[in-house]
Design a protein around this nucleic acid. Structure first.
Length: 474
RNA sequence: GGGCCCGUAGCUCAAGCAGGCAGAGCAGGGGACUUUUAAUCCCAAGGUUGAGAGUUCGAUUCUCUCCGGGCCCA
């Protein structure tokens, strides 16, 4: 083997994890006769003068290299002794176990692939500061195995989601990020500018209205997994850019969506954890179907200790809200007030996965009127461990009703309510061409990854989260 | 937006309450060592204590402003 350092490529023939799996049963002092070439980053080094142990890490795991001065020709042994923690190295030799039984590659040749120019973080304590880990994710991934595992779990979740929807005939599409009007949700958009059109543009805040246009166009089952942008605060569960999955299925209603979500969530949980139960914040969550279903009015009534309905006088509902410590706005109708009570006293107390259904019409301007109650909609949210993971409807398909709802939103906005949906004329025009009955759903992917990885800060599931610049631009 | 807290060597942390020479471990440098598992041992080196201002004979420590971050509340 050549002794040139820093070669342009290295022919690796074995991964650390494969060697560990293949040779799990070897006793101390074994020789396998298997010659391999391994490569990775040096994580640990223990030097004994004429004998050096290196622990290297490749993308599969860790393996020990054993260098004996008597086996290495020329200056190869000296090169091993000069290695720094963090260097990338390659080595060839026989798979053996040491006197203490540690699986190792006993080097016959060795090459430095790349040298480190800065010291790695503490080899034992790693890097703990959440800001530093986010800014220098490459270091976090090197020294914190957990961070790599979370990144891999995220990829696994995305893979399962794609496969679950694809298997059901959903077609993955891409809709515009750059828009003149950001619609489909309530959020402040990011503004930008198109130079040659001399046009102010906005980054999307939702996928909803474009996917519905595709259903109008006859793409009966579509889904998109994409980044949406909301120009709002940053905290442990909010990043300005985050990942949504939205899916729409023609000829289906929200009951079909509940079934679909239940199946998809069980599949994701099984794929990441191997079972139907996860541990989150030290407590277990059981996804064994069927998951609990309860209407929002049932849950609010239960929490209030008295029947709560949209029929009750608004003043009574406001009084009820105030007794539960909820501030209400004078402009709110009964639906908003009931939602406020729900947000204050119900949602946070739900632990086991629960489909909360049948939201008031007032707070659901894109959902279809409930087939048995004109003040409610056919809508559900999946709530787990006090947070919402899915929002879904029987979609509102009537262009006249949709226009009325948008106008109500516009009126509320004109009255000073910033929490109102913008009107989208082209979307209304699309509905006028006829949208079939459709079930739709949206899943917050980042939160789902947090849930199944028992991670409690959104920064830990986004590789490069939004951060302020490290130093002022000046 | 409000409250509380944090920022010291590349990393993980002391010293701070009650102002008096800023210390360790790891990493990096030099040396010893043929079976380690965060190897061990010896030596030397490593600092704008986030930035700026104030109080003081003297500030990492007290005060203020700013920068960055965390937790809780809204």
């Amino acid at each position: 083997m050549a002794v040139d350092d820093h070669p342009y490529r290295f022919e690796r023939t074995a991964l650390a994890a494969d060697l560990a799996a293949t040779h799990a049963e070897l006793g101390p002092g074994s020789e396998t006769g298997q010659l391999v070439a391994v490569a990775g980053r040096v994580m640990l080094k223990r030097s004994f003068g004429k004998l050096v142990f290196l622990t290297i890490r490749d993308y599969s795991g860790r393996i020990q290299l054993l260098a004996e001065s008597s086996r290495l020709a020329g200056d190869l042994f000296e090169r091993v002794t000069e290695v720094n923690l963090g260097d990338w190295v390659g080595g060839e030799g026989e798979v053996v176990t040491t006197k203490k039984g540690e699986l190792s590659v006993r080097l016959d040749s060795f090459v430095v692939l790349a040298q480190i120019h800065r010291p790695l973080p503490d080899k034992w304590h790693g890097m703990t500061d959440i800001e530093a880990r986010s800014r220098q994710r490459y270091l976090d991934l090197i020294v914190n195995d957990r961070s790599l595992a979370v990144a891999q779990a995220r990829a696994q979740v995305l893979s399962v989601l794609r496969s679950e929807f694809s298997q059901r005939g959903f077609v993955e599409v891409e809709t515009p990020v750059l828009l003149s009007q950001a619609t489909g949700a309530i959020a402040r958009p990011f503004l930008t500018h198109h130079e040659s059109l001399d046009l102010q543009m906005k980054l999307r805040i939702s996928l909803e209205l474009y996917l519905k246009r595709l259903v109008v166009g006859g793409m009966e089952r579509v889904f998109e997994i994409g980044r949406v942008f909301r120009n709002e605060g940053i905290d442990s569960t909010h990043n300005p850019e985050f990942t949504m999955l939205e899916a729409y299925q023609a000829l289906a209603d929200y009951h079909d969506m509940i079934t679909l979500v239940e199946e998809v969530f069980v599949s994701v949980v099984k794929s990441v954890t191997g079972g139907t139960t996860i541990t989150y914040r030290g407590k277990s969550i059981d996804f064994n179907p069927p998951l609990r279903r309860a209407t929002m009015l049932e849950l609010v009534s239960e929490a209030a200790g008295e029947p709560v309905s949209l029929d009750r006088p608004l003043e009574e509902l406001r009084g009820l809200a105030q007794r539960h410590g909820t501030e209400v706005d004078d402009r709110w109708g009964p639906g908003r007030v009931i939602e406020a009570i729900y947000d204050e006293v119900v949602e946070g107390s739900i632990w086991e996965p629960t489909f909360v259904t049948d939201h008031p019409k007032e707070i659901s301007p894109l959902a279809r009127i409930h087939r048995s109650s004109p003040d409610l909609t056919e809508r559900f949210e999946l709530v787990i461990a006090g947070s919402e993971y899915v929002n879904a409807f029987s979609e509102l398909i009537d262009p006249l009703d949709q226009r009325t709802r948008f106008e109500e939103q516009a009126a509320a906005r004109a009255a000073g309510d910033l929490e109102a949906h913008p009107l989208d004329e082209d979307f209304l025009r699309a509905l006028e061409y006829g949208m079939p009955p459709t079930g739709g759903l949206g899943i917050g992917v980042d939160r789902l990854v947090m849930l199944v990885t028992d991670t409690h800060h959104i920064r830990d599931v986004i590789l490069f989260p939004t951060l302020r610049p490290e130093r002022p631009p000046t």
